[in-house]
Design a protein around this nucleic acid. Structure first.
Length: 314
DNA sequence: AAGTAGTTCAACCGCCATCTA
DNA sequence: CTAGATGGCGGTTGAACTACT
């Protein structure tokens, strides 16, 4: 026999109302995040536990930064997407103030198109060169380009792996500015609830699309929901995130195509989620550490973007 | 002002790994 | 050990919004 069912039928769907938000926030303030299956029953919310978790992690959780992505964030996302594929949760671990959903949306609505345009423009330019020269210069150009890109890709991969592995000496990847432990439950919940109410009042009856409800939500009370977890659980997550970082395309044959299109990979469960074989990892680690001696790991953001930085400029 | 097309993003869906009775 | 629930993730959808005609 398994566990009892988590949510019964008759659960409510659709946009969350401010009342529901308040109930959920209040409950999490009192009990902490986690044990989602008990949330609907204990709060009386007619929502499935999954929906509660999603609402909390993607919207109500303190420390979520909303609004436009900065150039730095954008570049970091592009880098990480090239490295990790569409592993939004892993990517989000590098941007603690952004949710995986936000990053995913931003990628799908902005970055992918942007990069497509750039790539298209580059292709057009290349085609123009070919037709202008009247000879087949494409191969030499493209070969030179992908070789350089490949080199950059490898370099970037090494940097990322190095960062992942060097976590042993760091407390946390891209550590978010955590508030004092005792404020982490939901430090500013009162404030947040007040804001919820305020916005609710302001809003007309036809509610949803409440983007501003938690917008600007106090950068001061940044705290990840892992702070409400047991250390063991947090540690588990940490290692999972770390594993995800290490698990990048080590098993793939590096080809020009891969290098060229890494950022456009549609179906990128890169490596199809296949775990990295230990021998490959140790080889990689060895290779990596041989190289790390000269300088260590800088911020990913500061890495050169591919071989064509202009690709990412507006 | 009204209609239409394009964009954004919150929320849902389905799958998978893990957990637990 | 097993069946089934849970939690987490990535893909997708569709309502709300915005820009354009």
């Amino acid at each position: 026999m398994g566990r009892p069912p988590c949510c019964d039928k008759g659960v409510k769907k659709g946009p969350w109302t401010p009342e529901e938000d308040i109930i959920l926030v209040t409950y999490i303030q009192d009990h902490g995040a986690g044990n989602w299956r008990s949330v609907p029953t204990n709060t009386g919310l007619m929502r499935c536990s999954k929906s509660c978790r999603l609402r909390w992690t993607n919207y109500l959780r303190p420390g979520i930064k909303r609004g436009n992505f900065t150039d730095q964030e954008e570049k970091l996302i592009i880098h990480l997407q090239a490295l990790l594929g569409n592993r939004w949760a892993a990517i989000a671990s590098y941007l603690p103030e952004r949710t995986d959903n936000d990053i995913k949306n931003y990628w799908n609505t902005h970055l992918k198109k942007k990069l497509m345009r750039k790539l298209q423009a580059a292709d057009d330019h290349q085609a123009a060169l070919i037709s202008a020269s009247g000879r087949n210069s494409y191969n030499s150009i493209s070969k030179g380009q992908w070789e350089r890109r490949l080199q950059t890709d490898i370099h970037t991969a090494k940097q990322a792996l190095c960062e992942a592995l060097s976590l042993d000496t760091k407390p946390c990847p891209a550590p978010p500015p955590l508030p004092p432990a005792n404020t982490c439950n939901y430090a500013s919940s009162t404030e947040n609830i007040a804001r919820l109410l305020q916005n609710w009042m302001k809003k007309s009856p036809k509610l949803p699309r409440r983007r501003e409800i938690s917008s600007g939500s106090s950068g001061s009370n940044v705290c990840s929901d892992t702070t409400t977890e047991s250390p063991a659980s947090a540690e588990k997550k940490f290692f999972a995130a770390r594993a995800a970082k290490v698990e990048f395309r080590m098993d793939s044959d590096v080809t020009p195509e891969l290098s060229e299109t890494s950022f456009l990979q549609e179906e990128s469960k890169p490596s199809s989620g296949a775990p990295v074989p230990a021998p490959a990892l140790s080889f990689f680690e060895t290779w990596l550490f041989e190289d790390v001696g000269n300088g260590g790991v800088g911020d990913l953001v500061d890495l050169p973007l591919s071989d064509a930085p202009d690709l990412f400029q507006e």
